[in-house]
Amino acid sequence: MGDSQIIQISNLVKDYAMGKQFFRALHDVNLSINTGEFCGLVGPSGSGKTTLLNIIGALDNPTGGDIIIMNNSIKDLKNKQAAKLRNESIGFIFQTYNLLPVYTVFENVEFPLLLLKKSKKEREEAVMRALEWVGLSDKVNSRPNQLSGGESQRVAVARAMVKLPRIVLADEPTANLDAANSHNILQTMLKLNLELKTTFIFATHDEKVIRYLRRKVALSDGNVINDIIMN
């Protein structure tokens, strides 16, 4: 793995049991992703992009092959080690935001830092910085149900970025947003990608997102059919 290479995917296979049969979601996928990339796994529903994203995020195990993330082999990771990897190095952004509804915006963004056992002062500084990035400094005490869809997703971005992860995985982040909010969110992520050199990997079939990508990895029926790097 080279210095700039952050993810190395080799001969990755993923099967799901369906009764007595197996469904192969990923067929022998090979891919390498470098630090600071702003790339997307694109393709229609059922193409395997979310499955691949889940395995990259150590949320799922491969059936065959392996993924090496920052020198960690996903297939060899124990639960605790996988949690540690996600905790320290990976941020997630979900399609449905998935903010914890009983906590305020500040507390939602603070949560990953609590897991990292950061001091109160460090947490306060980091949360306020992350909320500034997404332009929600005035919403610290709001609850998720008081936010619009766009605002909720910006909180989710702040939560993913607050610990300064090396990789952010975003699964259909704009699926529930209108064009203006999608543009806003993507601009924010692009800015963070450029300023912090964070690697962004999207799973999407949304044209609004695809337009922003600097690399598009096209998937179809679990196979990589195209890998285009834009200039």
Binding site: G57, L59, N79, K80, A83, K84, L85, R86, N87, E88, I90, F92, F94, N98, L100, F111, P112, L115, L116, R159
Partner: peptide, 16 residues
Amino acid sequence: YGEVGVRLALGEAKAH
């Protein structure tokens, strides 16, 4: 389960 999923994704260990 939903909340558990988020907490796992954010890096909290299952045992925790």
